[in-house]
Computed example of a mutant assay.
Amino acid sequence: MSDASPRLEPFIPQTEPAALEDLRARLRATRWPDAPEDAGWSLGTDITYLRELVAYWADGFDWMAQEKALARLPRFRTRLGGLGIHFVHAPAVAPTRPVLPLVLSHGWPDSFWRYSKVVPLLTDPGAHGADPADAFDVVVPDMPGFGYSDRPTGPPLNSIAVAGLWAELMSELGYPRFGAAGGDIGSHVSRYLALDHPDRVVAVHRTDGGLPVLTGDPADLTPEERAWFSDVGTWGASEGAYGAIHRTKPQTAAVGLTDSPAGLAAWIVEKLRAWSDCDGDVERSFTRDEILTNLTLYWLTDTIGSSMRMYSANSAIPPGQLARRVEVPSGFSLFPGDILRPPKAWLERTTNVVRVTEPARGGHFAAFEEPELYAEELRAFFRPYRAAATD
């Protein structure tokens, strides 16, 4: 998209058959590592499962059908900060009162894909057994370096910079005031939207509190917070290696993950399994086609390296920025299968918390795993703030 193009352009990608043939050839030519007997998932991705997934990806998966299904979402591209940004913009259907615009921010390892199931539930609640008055205008951008947005050629953008882009996008779409929601990296982006644009963000919903950074006296922590910090340390030692690589040496990992679709699958599927509410069976949370849709988006857009580099950018955010207090009304839905669920006392240290819930099911990718539950969480939280968006 050139600077001379219209500010907003409809966007429907069409994959070249040669790109799919190259992908299938690479999958069929995978050079497999050995694995100890009965290792399962204990040392990382289960090679037996991965072989089955790769075989289906090569000879059974219908990407064209998935691409066509995703094209039902109204999608556009525009330029923000010198980058082409891809986003979903789905207006409310037959609203019965003023509509609340809502920008949803994804995390890693995903893209707008995370919210593809929940968009129709939010724009047309009446068609899904909910109150039509709870309809949203929904905006779901791909972060720079993710999905169909451009990959930054210079330094990667951090969550603060992306929040600034989203504020600009909402202005471009004609929304002076709006709600913000997200999880994972998207939780941080939503937080900085509230911090840097409190006159525009009426309320913020998040599914996590992020990794904790303590800037005060540890003696001030409650017993629950101390126990949580201990759990965070244990989790980091056993599960955090991927994050350390993303923060410090993303380009090293990106070489193999960009060249090998099987390697890409191993890197991402392990996280889909570990972070979802699936009781160890990843296909309880995601169908095989859903897993491969996410993987194929990463493969075709060549964004695994650029997505990992955002960790490096975020790791350089000064602690003082991380400790800033969010005064915009904030809500948290802490899903049972998510990682590092914080105690309420910790959330209240730097956030104006007005609502915390613990839904019965769902994990890190709650909007995709349990779209109906997630949609109801958003409807309930934002209901008191709808009028504020039209003030």
Rank of each mutant, 00 (worst) to 15 (best):
T78R: 07
F178W: 15
G182D: 03
F365I: 08
S111Y: 14
W108Y: 12
R284Q: 14
S111W: 11
V328K: 03
P261D: 04
T215F: 09
R226F: 05
L292F: 08
P101H: 09
R273M: 01
L100V: 10
A323L: 06
R97N: 09
L221K: 06
V353F: 07
G81F: 06
R200K: 08
A316D: 05
E52M: 04
R24P: 00
W299A: 02
A389P: 02
N294W: 10
G129N: 04
D137A: 07
K344N: 11
L23H: 08
Y175I: 07
D59P: 03
L27F: 10
T15G: 11
T293R: 13
F381H: 08
E168R: 14
D22T: 15
G183S: 07
A90G: 00
R309N: 09
G147S: 00
G154E: 15
L340E: 10
S238W: 07
D110Q: 12
R325P: 02
P132C: 06
V88Q: 03
G82E: 01
K117R: 05
E37Y: 04
D289I: 02
R341S: 15
L300C: 12
P342G: 14
E52A: 12
L83W: 01
D220N: 09
A375W: 04
D110I: 11
L334Y: 00
I12Y: 13
P36G: 02
T287W: 11
D302E: 12
I160G: 01
E283Y: 02
H197C: 09
R31M: 07
K68T: 10
F368Y: 15
R97D: 08
S116C: 15
S159Q: 13
D124S: 04
V189R: 08
T215R: 09
A69E: 15
P91C: 07
A133F: 08
W346R: 15
A360N: 10
R325N: 11
L373S: 14
K271S: 00
E67K: 03
F229K: 05
A18L: 14
S330R: 07
S5H: 14
A274I: 09
Y49G: 05
E283H: 13
V282Y: 01
A29S: 13
A237L: 14
A345G: 06
H89D: 02
N158I: 01
A241Y: 13
E283S: 03
M143V: 07
D62K: 09
T153H: 13
F382V: 09
A161R: 10
L373Q: 13
P384W: 15
L20G: 02
E172A: 15
T252A: 01
D137E: 06
R355H: 13
A39L: 02
P36D: 08
T350C: 06
